[in-house]
Simulated assay, not measured.
Amino acid sequence: MTVLVFGAGGAQGGAVARRLVEEGLAVRGVSRTGAVPEGVEPVRADLGDRGRLREAFAGVTRVSMVLPLEYDPGRVAAYTRNVLAEAAAAGVARLVFNPGNRLPRADTGAAAFDTRRAAARAVLDSPVPAVVLCPPIYLENLAAPWVRRGLAGEGVLRYPVPASVPVAWLSHADLAAATLAALTGDDLAGATLDLGGEPMTGPELAAAFGARYKAVDVEVFAAGMAAALGPDVAAGVAGTYRWVAGPGRELYAASPGGAKRLGIEVTSPADWAAGQAWRWQR
């Protein structure tokens, strides 16, 4: 079995690639720079380049697909078509698509949600046997400098979600475990599975760090993100938080039954926090 992992140079795809290598699988990683984890065969490619994608798919039997942080509908649709066309041509037996977020049931006006909803529909409508894994918010987001500073230095968890909104959280390691299970498990083709642990409010999450919670304005949060990831990415992500603070308050509170179906155990925020050297200590 050879697994092609998209985004292998990034946080989500990199976690998946490392887990697959640990399992002894042959892993080929696609990234724009060619940077991939140790033990992964590198492929430098852009999802807009069908020729390079065709080379990347040679001999591949399984695919872990994640899209780059781009939210232009036409570009995202083209990337998705290219991957699915090459996967079908290669006879891929299972494709696991991670849209990078939970998927609302209807269009939201937030491009980061709506482009991924369209991509997920295309994936499931394609002839390639596929599974869609929908993560909630990642625990690793709390390690971002603009969040970690408050946690480590003041014991304050600042995040752009209202304190009363429950969120199921997920680690990158658990995403990788879920992806492995979805790539290899039986009777999963066609499934869309929500991932995450038991939902908790902001104060409950902060308690896992021995800290207190303070909801922050989305625009302030986006400004901090823009410094690291650029204004376009920050604007796209900020749109999801605005929607979750309004009509989408229940998006991350939905029962995360996907982990149970995949047979994985989700790491609790408290256990994850205990492993962070920078966590708040009184």
Rank of each mutant, 00 (worst) to 15 (best):
R81K: 12
P135T: 06
A112Y: 11
P99C: 07
P135L: 00
V128S: 12
V128E: 14
N98V: 13
V147N: 11
P135Q: 05
P127S: 09
A130P: 12
R102P: 03
L95S: 14
I137W: 00
L124S: 15
D125P: 06
V128Y: 05
N141A: 00
F113Q: 04
R149M: 07
R81T: 12
V132N: 05
R105E: 15
A120N: 11
A88Y: 03
L84G: 15
R149V: 10
L133S: 08
G153Y: 03
A87S: 14
D114R: 09
G150V: 11
A144Q: 14
N82W: 10
A112Q: 13
L142W: 06
A111E: 15
E140G: 03
A122D: 15
Y79C: 10
P135R: 04
A89F: 02
G150S: 10
Y138L: 02
R94D: 13
P127W: 03
A143Y: 00
A90G: 01
V147T: 13
R117E: 03
L151I: 15
F113H: 08
N101D: 10
A93H: 14
Y138C: 04
R81G: 11
W146L: 15
P99G: 05
N141H: 10
R116I: 02
G109A: 07
A112W: 09
A144D: 12
G109F: 06
G153S: 04
A152Y: 03
L95D: 09
V147D: 05
R117D: 03
R148L: 13
V131M: 05
E86S: 06
